[in-house]
Every structure is written in structure tokens, then in C-alpha cells.
Design a protein around this nucleic acid. Sequence first.
DNA 1: CGGCATCCGTTCGCGTTCCGTAAGACTTGG
DNA 2: CCAAGTCTTACGGAACGCGAACGGATGCCG
Lengths: 249, 249
Amino acid sequence: MNVSPAAPSPIGNEDLVGRRVLVVDDDPTVAEVASSYLRSAGFVVDEVGDGFAALAAAERIDPDLIVLDRMLPGIDGVEVCRRLRTHSSTPVILLTALGSEDDRIAGLEAGADDYLAKPFSPRELVLRVQSVLRRSIGEFTPESVLEYGGFRLDPSARTATRDGAELALTSREFDLFEFLLKHRNQVFSREDLLRTVWGWTYGDLSTVTVHVRRLREKIEPDPRTPTLLTTVWGVGYRFTTNGDADAVG
Amino acid sequence: MNVSPAAPSPIGNEDLVGRRVLVVDDDPTVAEVASSYLRSAGFVVDEVGDGFAALAAAERIDPDLIVLDRMLPGIDGVEVCRRLRTHSSTPVILLTALGSEDDRIAGLEAGADDYLAKPFSPRELVLRVQSVLRRSIGEFTPESVLEYGGFRLDPSARTATRDGAELALTSREFDLFEFLLKHRNQVFSREDLLRTVWGWTYGDLSTVTVHVRRLREKIEPDPRTPTLLTTVWGVGYRFTTNGDADAVG
DNA sequence: CGGCATCCGTTCGCGTTCCGTAAGACTTGG
DNA sequence: CCAAGTCTTACGGAACGCGAACGGATGCCG
């Protein structure tokens, strides 16, 4: 019944208090809201408004994490991220506009650790910051490979196989599968998935429906009658490890 | 990329009982309805009618969450939200006029954690409040499994089994069963159940009757003569832990 | 530069499931 | 035997999930 495949993180929120976070956004309102929230959560926050200032500040104050808007005057957020990566491994959370898939991919490829679609709930931001920080402080291990019931997901390589055979998953499908596999045997509403997997605060829930269907097409023995990625009527979806699974955690 | 909250503390709805909610609306009717529903869900509720009072009350009673109407006499709801943010991180749910997408965005950027379009269903409000609170405490922390007399309920997976065999319960049936199993050996009137399980303050009591019957059909050895989910004549229903008990006195 | 393929988000119609209510039969207690 | 309470059944409507298809955006390759 244990859900977490990796050992539970030994890092409490207390260990995060006092960490430095650099917020980079040209919109003062957004920056202000984000900052005040992060401060309330116990972080020490600095704000800058453009890409050059971001690079300079990153050099000067050496923050523990950077929250970076994708759209910036001067240097683009993704470019900032890339340049940061050349000489540091400071975790970066990228703020992207809604729906721009490429922003997300570009962000991930540039080395961002997480992303969040605007407009975002500040609370969500805090959760992500804490999550990323906890991860980066704790094990320096890149990311553990996920294995279950013949499936094998490698998050760092972003490849998926079933019984050794390559599964041609798209980016979204991979994210979705990874999340469900990580939290198997737990039901998630479409809204939950949209928030966590997509990083959206709101949006069309049928987006999730369709992607679930497409994912099923690739991982289910018989997509017509799902046995792994099952529907919980009126609630959401669940990756089930029941009955026939010859699983090794 | 991935968001793993991985907080070790399990959070059920009981942990939300007793939390303070501040309802801010200038329409007494709306405020009253919202309050009574929230109280029924176990929250301690305070009401105020305008923006200034809201800020004052927030300062004074330090609520766990604030339900805030967007349209307010005095200070606008969004502005209230923004001012709150300068010195606290109390979660805010914003009530906005129907359909206006911009309100939504403005609200989220002002620091709201969720929003709800008017007119809203009180039940929806309760769900949102619980959802946001739970999220602010720690997301996706699986609830503890409920086991008794061969039955096994897993709230996070939303699965029910008897002696290992899957019980095909509908959403309502699951909620009802879960509640009764949690508070076994305790009698609840139809009204109680309608309020707690359904989240209604009024409604047709026969709704409960029918669902009890349907649930019996699935969990009782002989549904005609219930031994587990028994009727207490003139009072209500009870999930009985020892089969023989007919404590009618 | 232009055509092709891929992926993603959205939309719409269809079939199914579930829920609430009504109405009548039955049981219980006085 | 009566009245109030409870059980059973049936039904219509609403909510929901699914499948198929479309248009747009993007990247790739000729």
C-alpha cells in the first residue's frame, strides 16, 4: 500500500527557512505578490525586473533558487536560464504563459527544474519552490528511475519502455505517466492533474481526458477496456496496481 | 517537470474541522448561506460585510482561510486581497461575477488561491474551501486506510473491498460508507447524513433512504435483513460492529 | 522556402452511468 | 386498526466520460 517509491524526504520545511530566493519578473504586481508570499513562507527574497539584472544578481547574491519569468525585457528568460547553467546549478522555476507548449519544452531543455503557468496561485508557487528546494538540497541524485510492472521510466533521459521495448510517448504523455506512476493507486481529479502535471491554475478539463485516452492507447493491453489507467467515475483517474500486476516496486 | 510534494503527514477531512473561515460579502443572504454550509462542514465561521471590516477581522481573528466577494462596498475585493498579501499569506477564495475571465486573472494575480463564479453552489464552495486548505497544508498526502470486519476502504484510491473482493460502489455510496465506517456504532438521522455526507442543509430525506438501500444491496450478506447497516426506528441509521446487536431496548 | 509530420488543445455528438424524486407497498408501535 | 415511518421499485433527467475529428502551431526535411 506504500505509495512513495523513493524514500520520503528527510527535509522538513524548517530547513528551508532563511533560504534565498531570487524573483525575476518585469511586472511589479506579480513580483510583489510572489515575493510577499515567499517571505511569509520564511524565505529571504530579492527582486529584479529584467534578464541582465537577474544574471548580475545571481552572481552577486548566489541565491538558493531562482523564480524566472519567461517573458522579460532584454534577455529572454530561457536564455537567462541557459547562461546560468553554464556556471552554476542553481535551481530555476520558470513562469510561462498559458498554453505555450514550446516554452515548457524550451525551458526544460534550458535546464529549468520546474515550470508554472501564468496566472498562477501564489500558494502553488510556494509549494513548488519548497518542493524543488527540498529536492536540490537533499539527494543530489538526478532523478531515480521509475519501475513498475514491466514499465520503466527514466526521467532524466525522458524515455519510457515496457518490457524493454521503447514506448513512443510525447512530452505531455511522459509527464502524465510519470506523475501517475509516482503516485500509483491514488485517484486524481482532472483538476489536480491540470494543476500538477500541466502547471495550470485553470483550464479546459477535457484536455486531461484526451491525453489520458492517448496515453491509454500506448500503455494499455486493450485500450478499450483499461486495466491500468482506470477511470473513477465522477472523481478522476488512477493508475491501478491491482490484481494482475506482477510488480516489483 | 515533476511535482512531488511528499509530505509525511496524512491529512483527512477531520484535520480541517475547527478551522476558522472568514466570509466577506455585503449581501447578507449570500453570506448567511455560505456560512451555514461551512459550519455544517465543521468550520468555525465569522462574517463581515465590507472590505475594511474584512481587513480588521483578518487581523484580529487570524482565520485559516478567507472567502472574499469581489464586489464590495468601500474597498474592492481584489484590493483587499492585495493588502492582505502585504503582511500575511492567509489563503483567499475570491467570489467573482459570472464568466468574466479577466476577473479571474486579476484575482489570481492579486494573490487569490482559487476563485468561484457567482452564483455558486454552496456545496461547491465547501469543496473548494477544503481543497485549498488541504493544499495549503500539504498536497496529495494519502488518507489512512479504513478497515473493519473484512471491509477495507482506501479513501485516496477510492476503492472498497470485502475480504479482498472489490465492491463496485458509486461515488455517493463510497462517501456514505466511509462516513458510517468512520463513525461506527453511532446513530445518524437522515438529516445528519444529508448535511455531512451530501453537504446539504435542506433536501429530500428519501434521498438518504434510497442510498442506504443501495449500499445495503452491496455490503449486506442478506440485504433483506440488514445486520451491519441497521435501521434505528424513528431515529436513523447506524453501522453496527457486532452482528447480533438489536439494542432497541 | 515550402510541404509534411507531429503534437497539442479544443469541440461536438453519442452512449452510459448515476442520482434524486415520486409513488405505492410494507412494517412498526401505539 | 391506524398513523407514522420505512422500504422498494421505477423513471426521467442530468452529469459524465469517451471517441472522433479539426485547426493551429511547431519542427523537420527536402
